[in-house]
Write a protein that binds this DNA or RNA. Structure first.
Length: 511
DNA sequence: GTAGGGTTAACC
DNA sequence: GGTTAACCCTAC
């Protein structure tokens, strides 16, 4: 009887042992509740779980951007994203601060008020040799100039923000550089500085300063520069007009007539065009190019996008019935000043213009899957107070001056100490509690997830999240009471890159 | 080519 | 200054 030599493990064996946290071919079990987890799962596997409890992936997934509303699921409120605006870049260490933290109930409410520290600046400060003022004081003046608090008049209304000569000079230089009509470019150009102006403000100001140039840009014909000897041209009120003379423009280095930004002239739609568009829409659906190419309709002078826009504007109900998203329009528009009681017209469906009854025979089945859109989904409103459904101002880099109350959120430094000071306080028993000043959210309770069967952590009072397998094991639970996984986790299941999400790897998700 | 959404002119 | 709608940009 020969005995095998005893194998002694070497360090290489230890190194080569499978990493317990990496995906393996052997099905792993949940470390807490022992639930079998999927191995080597792909995003497709995950989609199967999410779409169908039986594990079948629907072949007809929703088309791009056309969300199926099965009435069983609800959407989390999405952050409005504005294109062409510079979104604030959040440092990696701060990313996620705009999302509810895992234990939001432990954190104090976030105040939008200015920190008190700003009012308790040290009195002594080194002096700026240029101005002989304390540097801090000078800095505060600059800050106040760049972002002034809206001064209130006696009537309580914000005072008119008069244009300074410097602002006007910036505007005129910008117009000379970018052309009449490129107001946003001028506004966003770092070379020019404006005090809480919108692109509309720039246009209005230019119309005041250079009415002839503004009108000429509309008519697309050159005109001689106005009298360079004095302000105001034809019909101006001497002494009061802000019109800029040729000499003043030349002082700013503007010697050439203002260029006009390339933009097609507007053409009103005639009744015949609208009728043809409706006919084309009935005939071709949202194939705008086909409508345009339909010679019988005589809409070839409009672009496909023009036709889409007109349909969307003129007949939003028909447009929506075709499964197309309505024009965002007024969202996120700030509430009107002094008309807070009025219901803002935000959804575009409550007051849509009706198409002529004769225009479309809607008794026939629609060309595209119909989609009923509820103005407000009640479960959403139970998640967050109405006031908090608007997040746009956080990322709105284009302050047009109307968002006077849209101050940036200031995090109190004490926010980091608060959880430690309240470590032993119990979480709120309900999903959220809201008073006039504070709101706390327990995201776990809010998600209404199935209760896990695992034992709770000793002394912690909190339960571990159930495994994904445990969640998806519910085949017959009431979907109406559940939430879709938040888009922050899954990126976008619609492959809509605009949402900025991405598919998380399965191991990422489990982690 | 289409959809979503931003920009701008015109009007009040 | 607010509203509306035509025009425009860009991701997909």
């Amino acid at each position: 009887m020969t005995s095998e030599p005893v194998y002694k493990p070497i360090s290489l064996d230890v190194i080569s042992r499978p990493n317990p946290v990496e995906p393996q071919s052997i099905p792993q079990r949940h470390p807490l509740n022992g639930t079998l987890q999927l191995s080597q799962a792909s995003n497709k596997d995950l989609l199967r779980l999410l779409y169908d409890a039986n594990g079948t992936l629907p072949e007809n997934r929703p088309a791009k951007r056309s969300k199926l509303d099965d009435g069983k699921s609800m959407d989390l409120p999405k952050l409005p994203v504005r294109q062409n605006t510079k979104r604030l870049r959040i440092p990696p260490t701060l990313s996620g601060l705009h999302q509810p933290p895992p234990n939001a109930g432990l954190l104090p409410s976030i105040s939008t008020e200015q920190p008190e520290a700003r009012q308790t600046l040290p009195l002594q400060s080194p002096k700026d040799p240029a101005t002989d003022k304390p540097i801090l004081e000078a800095a505060m003046e600059v800050t106040a100039c760049a972002d002034p608090e809206p001064a209130l008049s006696k009537t309580g209304k914000p005072k008119r923000n008069k244009w300074s000569d410097e602002e006007t000079a910036c505007l005129l230089k910008g117009v000379a550089r970018f052309g009449v009509g490129n107001w946003t470019k001028i506004l966003n150009c770092p070379d020019y500085h404006f005090l809480k102006r919108s692109a509309l403000d720039l246009k209005d100001r230019f119309r005041v300063c250079c009415p002839n140039d503004y009108q000429r840009s509309k008519k697309q014909r050159p005109a001689p520069r106005p009298n360079p000897t004095g302000p105001g041209t034809s019909g101006s009120r001497p002494g009061r007009s802000d019109r800029k003379s040729g000499a003043e423009l030349q002082d700013l280095g503007i010697n050439q007539p203002f260029a006009k930004v390339q933009r097609r002239n507007r053409h009103e739609y005639s009744a015949a065009e609208d009728a043809a568009l409706l006919t084309g829409f009935e005939r071709h659906g949202s194939q705008w190019a086909a409508i345009r190419a339909d010679e019988e309709l005589e809409l070839g002078h409009r672009t496909a996008t023009d036709l889409r826009d007109r349909m969307r504007t003129k007949y939003p109900d028909l447009y929506a019935k075709a499964g197309l998203a309505p024009r965002p329009g007024v969202f996120p528009k700030p509430a009107k000043r002094g008309k807070k009681d009025e219901q803002p017209k935000t959804d575009g469906h409550a007051e849509v213009q009706r198409a002529p009854e004769h225009a479309l025979a809607l008794d026939k089945p629609p060309l595209l899957p119909t989609k009923t859109i509820e103005p407000i989904k009640q479960p959403q409103s139970s998640l967050l107070p109405d006031d908090d459904l608007f997040f746009g101002a956080l990322f709105d880099g284009n302050d047009d001056g109307d968002d006077d109350d849209a101050e940036g959120i200031t995090l109190d430094r004490g926010i980091l100490d608060w959880p430690l000071d309240n470590l032993h306080s119990k979480p709120p028993p309900v999903a959220y509690e809201m008073s006039k000043t504070t709101m706390t959210i327990d995201p776990i309770a809010t998600l209404n997830l199935p209760r896990p069967t695992v034992p709770q952590h000793a002394n912690s009072g909190y339960s571990a999240l159930p495994s994904l397998a445990a969640i998806t094991a519910f085949n017959d639970f009431d979907m109406a009471g559940q939430l879709e996984l938040p888009s922050l986790m899954l990126g976008s299941l619609e492959s809509d890159g605009r949402s900025g999400g991405h598919f998380l790897g399965f191991d990422e998700l489990l982690s």
